[in-house]
Amino acid sequence: MSNFAAFLETIEAPRVIYDIGGGTGNYSQIAARAFRGSEIHLVEPDAGMIGAAKAKLADYANIHYESCPFEEIDATGTADLVVCVHAIYTMPSPKQRIADLRRMLRPGGWLYLVDIGRYIDVSDWRRYLFAALRKEHGLAGALRILWQGREISKQNKAIFEAQKKGVYWTHTEAELAADVIAAGFDIVEQKSVYRGYSDLLICRPRP
């Protein structure tokens, strides 16, 4: 999320922001802190996550909640910034959903896209996370955080199983870049993130 906060420092304040598949509101919260005058729409079909987001973001009056699938959002040409983090790979017709992201943006707008593309090695991810947490919080702190986040570990296992079954979309860096360009974007920046399992793309819509 530090990448996102750093990116926001480089752009003008957006009037309208859409956080697609916003989950419990982590990225909406960063955007709300950076741009208190922006109108932020958190789009999340899961009622439990929407509930958690509303509790977390109760102090921000500029966030609107839309509890429906992304493909049902009618917001053509209204957004100055669209954020979509670890959501497209779970959606039906992901290439069409990328085109929908393009459709939402005004000329000159920004897309901040992160998507899981490769199979998640759950053991590798757990080892990496533990080492990073131990370095920052010590052994006891790392163990406590991992215990508190055990539900995330279960989710990662579920993601891996869905990837193997073809339920979730997988792609290489080059394949995702090609799909984004085909949808009408120019890529400003692209890099591998999250231990190489995901790709980060910062894009602008072509005129």
Results as ranks from 00 to 15, higher is better:
Tyr128Ser: 13
Tyr128Gln: 07
Tyr128Cys: 10
Tyr128Glu: 10
Leu129Ile: 04
Leu129Trp: 05
Phe130Ala: 14
Phe130Glu: 15
Phe130Trp: 11
Ala132Asn: 08
Leu133Arg: 08
Leu133Phe: 12
Arg134Ala: 15
Lys135Thr: 09
Lys135Val: 04
Lys135Leu: 12
His137Cys: 11
Ala140Ser: 08
Ala140Met: 09
Ala142Trp: 02
Leu143Cys: 08
Arg144Ile: 04
Ile145Gly: 06
Ile145Glu: 15
Ile145Phe: 09
Ile145Arg: 13
Ile145Thr: 10
Leu146Asp: 11
Leu146Ile: 12
Trp147Asn: 12
Trp147Cys: 10
Gly149His: 06
Gly149Tyr: 06
Arg150Val: 00
Glu151Trp: 02
Glu151Leu: 01
Glu151Phe: 01
Ile152Thr: 01
Ser153Glu: 12
Ser153Ala: 12
Asn156Arg: 01
Asn156Glu: 00
Asn156Lys: 00
Lys157Met: 01
Ala158His: 00
Ile159Phe: 02
Ile159Gly: 03
Phe160Leu: 11
Phe160Val: 02
Ala162Gly: 04
Ala162Arg: 09
Ala162Leu: 09
Gln163Thr: 05
Lys164Asp: 15
Lys164Cys: 15
Lys164Ser: 13
Lys165Leu: 15
Gly166Met: 14
Gly166Lys: 08
Val167Lys: 13
Val167Thr: 15
Val167Glu: 15
Val167Asn: 10
Val167Ile: 15
Tyr168Leu: 15
Thr170Glu: 13
His171Gly: 08
His171Pro: 03
His171Lys: 05
His171Asn: 11
His171Trp: 06
Thr172Cys: 11
Thr172Ser: 15
Glu173Lys: 10
Glu173Trp: 03
Glu173His: 08
Ala174Met: 08
Ala174Glu: 14
Glu175Leu: 04
Leu176Tyr: 02
Ala177Pro: 01
Ala178Leu: 07
Asp179Val: 03
Val180Glu: 13
Val180Leu: 13
Ile181Thr: 14
Ile181Pro: 02
Ala182Cys: 07
Ala182Arg: 09
